[in-house]
Design a protein around this nucleic acid. Structure first.
Length: 526
DNA sequence: TCCTCCTCGA
């Protein structure tokens, strides 16, 4: 109190609380400061607004903006950046974009690279990478040179959209303009290449990093560990972890979780558990996600009881199960047809205040259909909208599949038309399910129409799509049609391979010695 | 003294 610390000291105190993620404490300290007439300035306000935003209370952030005006302070670009980020983190991207445009139009701020990036990142995260790219060009026109973070944001998004070559183009552009890429740039690119299994390019990029004297960090290594683990190469993943330790970048909970996931994918649950023990003994505490990976592993192996045991263990370790934890177990119960337990579990989950999301609904609908309860699935589907949940294309595919399985052809057809009316783009899966359903019902013409529709919408059929339709033709003795389709699939670059041949083979075994089938046998069987 | 980008889960 004597002397009273400066406004900078108080602001640093607040910032320290933010860094420790004690947002509610920080906000109450801030309001105490205000009521005690302790000096504050615009930076103190910005820090407080940032707290509100992390606290998922943008509304309080805007209340503080009003207070700024009331006290005669002038909000700066940081104030607005923080508010925009708050809006975006609460899925209000369109509002954020509108506010940003107004700020520019009214010359309220001199936009800098940070505020531009906040919007660029928002566009990337809402699936509009191409618009983000346009904004990257636009900021330059506004006299604001893009920095490495702006490039990194777009490069990361392109890489995640599988457009790694475009991302690599931006890397080249950076070098041309003298903007040095950093470890984040390379990490994003490596991840993009990992998703496409372009191992040679990854090696090349790692060499490139070395030439630029940029060392991989925890993130980079974790990306590589994850990629190897996903690819089943757990031994290589283990080797990478050793390398991390040697190079002074010790693995963390993310690295070990990725390795665990690799073991789970191979069904080696004992080894996954061993990883959990290793990390704990090294003082790295598992988080909810680590448990979710393990729980998922056990559910996929139909060992739902062990999964439930792990769920019960979480609170003992100070962890709160997430919606993902509950959804995984629910999926396990439904897949093992433990309907009563699933129902009880679902009720309990809702009682605990867990909020449903689209993925949980997807799991429930899939589970209901899988257990032959299409009617209940449909009524749940109709309830979704009243909960503010918008069904996605996967949900439509699941329901259409369920309806066909129950021979409800008209309802399936209706649902398909409805999704088109809603402006949803059917996926290859949706189309394939339609084709499969129509084939089962002997409606070959309708099935074929769907194939044509796919091509019209530039949705490329897969080998499986063709095989399903071909099988449908043969089963319905439309041999010529089947043969034409085989030619068609070959023309589209697919091989009429073993599974196509086996269709013919299956039918030969089932059916009488139909001469047309015998002719086909000559064509396909060795 | 405050605000942007990268790693694991259904």
């Amino acid at each position: 109190m004597k002397p009273l610390p400066s406004v900078i000291d108080f602001t640093q105190l607040l910032a320290a609380l933010v860094k420790m993620k004690h947002y509610s404490v920080a906000v109450s300290v801030f309001s105490k400061m205000c009521s005690c007439s302790i000096p504050v300035n615009i930076i103190t306000y910005n820090t407080a607004i940032n707290c509100c935003c992390h606290f998922k209370r943008v509304d309080c952030g805007f209340a503080l903006l009003a207070a700024i005006f009331k006290r005669g302070f002038v909000p700066d670009v940081v104030t607005y950046t923080t508010l925009l980020r708050g809006l975006i983190s609460q899925d209000k991207f369109l509002e954020a974009e509108l506010m940003f445009k107004n700020l520019l139009k009214c010359n309220q701020i001199q936009p800098n690279a940070v505020i531009f990036n906040t919007i660029i990142n928002g566009q990337c995260k809402t699936g509009n990478t191409s618009q983000a790219m346009m904004l990257l060009r636009y900021m330059e026109k506004k006299g604001c040179m893009p920095n490495v973070v702006n490039y990194n944001t777009v490069i990361d998004s392109l890489s995640k959209d599988r457009l790694v070559d475009d991302a690599l183009g931006l890397l080249a552009e950076m070098s041309d303009r003298g903007i040095q890429p950093d470890v984040v740039t390379y990490s994003s690119l490596i991840q993009g290449l990992c998703n496409l299994n372009r191992w040679d390019d990854i090696t090349q990029l790692l060499k490139d990093m070395g030439r630029h004297k940029i060392s991989p960090n925890k993130h980079t290594y974790s990306i590589l560990v994850d990629a190897h683990a996903r690819d089943g190469k757990v031994k290589d993943a283990e080797y990478l972890i050793e390398l991390m330790i040697q190079r002074g970048q010790p693995p963390d909970v993310v690295t070990y979780s990725a390795l665990m996931d690799g073991y789970c994918l191979r069904g080696e649950l004992d080894k996954a558990l061993a990883v959990l023990r290793t990390m704990t003994s090294e003082g790295i505490l598992p988080d909810s996600q680590t448990y979710n990976i393990l729980i998922n592993g056990y559910c996929k192996k139909m060992k739902v009881d062990t999964a439930i045991h792990l769920l019960e263990e979480m609170p003992l370790k100070g962890l709160t199960p997430t919606i993902e934890t509950y959804s995984t177990i629910l999926d396990g119960l439904l897949r093992t047809r433990r309907l009563d337990e699933a129902h009880k579990f679902y009720k309990k989950m809702l009682n605990q205040g867990v909020k449903l999301n689209v993925v949980t609904c997807r799991i429930l609908l899939h589970g209901l259909c899988w257990n032959g309860l299409v009617g209940e699935a449909m009524s749940m589907f109709h309830n979704m909208e009243s909960c503010g949940l918008v069904p996605d294309i996967h949900i439509y595919s699941i329901l259409i599949h369920g309806l066909f399985k129950d021979s409800k052809v008209d309802k399936a057809r209706n649902l398909f038309h409805n999704l088109l009316l809603k402006g949803l783009q059917p996926s290859v899966k949706t189309y394939t399910i339609m084709i499969h359903g129509f084939c089962q019902e002997g409606l070959l013409e309708e099935a074929y129409k769907i194939l044509l529709e796919m091509e019209e919408h530039n949705c490329l059929p897969t080998e499986a799509t063709y095989n399903i339709l071909i099988r449908g033709c043969f089963k319905n003795k439309m041999y010529d049609g089947g043969c034409l389709l085989i030619d068609d699939m070959v023309a589209h670059g697919f091989k009429a391979d073993a599974s196509t041949a086996s269709i013919v083979f299956d039918l030969l075994q089932l059916k009488d010695q139909d001469p047309a089938l015998l002719a086909l046998q000559k064509k396909f069987m060795p």
